Structures are given as structure tokens and as C-alpha cells.
Computed example of a mutant assay.
Amino acid sequence: MFEIRVICDPDDADRISTALTAAFHTGPARQDPTRDRKRTRLYFTATHRTSGTTHTESE
């Protein structure tokens, strides 16, 4: 088990959550604003998927 932290624009949070859920087994994301309140921090608890290979947009 490991934790993933992503800092992103609030408008991108849903897209990022969907992509990480497709790539890993994740729990629900915890969300907090950044100190400047302009971006969002997403925290996911995750484990590796054991079957199949998932490709992400960056591959």
C-alpha cells in the first residue's frame, strides 16, 4: 500500500481521480486546498493492480 499526492487545478481533479482509479486500486480521494488556495491537493491510498496492464495518457 502507498499514498499518491497530486497537486492540480481544481478543474482537473475529476479527470486525475478517474485516471488513477483506472491504473491502481484506490480508496476515495481526500481533497485539501493548497496554501495559496489556487490549486487542490488530492491524496489517494492505493495498491498496485495485480492483473492486466493499464496504459496512461503519458505512455
Rank of each mutant, 00 (worst) to 15 (best):
T40Y: 01
F2H: 08
F2E: 12
T53A: 15
H25Y: 15
D12Y: 11
G52V: 11
A19E: 15
T21L: 13
E3C: 03
A13Y: 00
K38H: 13
D9W: 04
Q31E: 01
H55D: 15
P33I: 03
T53F: 14
D11R: 03
P10T: 00
A22Q: 13
T45L: 08
T26G: 09
S17K: 15
M1R: 04
H25K: 13
P33H: 04
S17E: 12
T40L: 07
M1P: 06
D11K: 02
D14I: 15
A22N: 15
P33A: 02
R5F: 06
A23W: 06
R30E: 10
I4Y: 00
D12L: 07
P33E: 02
F2N: 06
S17A: 15
D9N: 06
L20R: 09
T54C: 07
S17P: 05
F24V: 09
G27D: 15
R30Q: 14
T45F: 12
D11Q: 04
P10I: 00
D32T: 15
R37L: 04
R15W: 10
T18C: 11
E3A: 01
A29I: 01
R37T: 06
T40N: 04
T34P: 03
A19I: 14
D14N: 06
A46F: 09
I7R: 10
A13R: 00
R35H: 13
C8A: 07
E3I: 02
R39T: 03
R5S: 04
T54Y: 05
G52P: 06
D12P: 02
T18M: 13
K38T: 08
R41V: 05
T40F: 04
K38S: 14
E59N: 10
T54F: 03
T50H: 13
E3V: 03
I16T: 10
R49H: 14
L20K: 11
D32A: 14
D14K: 09
T26A: 13
D11W: 01
C8R: 00
T56A: 08
R41A: 11
V6T: 01
G27L: 11
L20Y: 13
A46D: 09
A22V: 13
F2Q: 10
D11C: 03
A19N: 11
E59W: 11
T53E: 15
Q31F: 04
V6C: 04
S17F: 08
T34Y: 01
H48W: 08
H25L: 13
D9T: 05
L42I: 02
L42T: 01
D12E: 13
H25F: 15
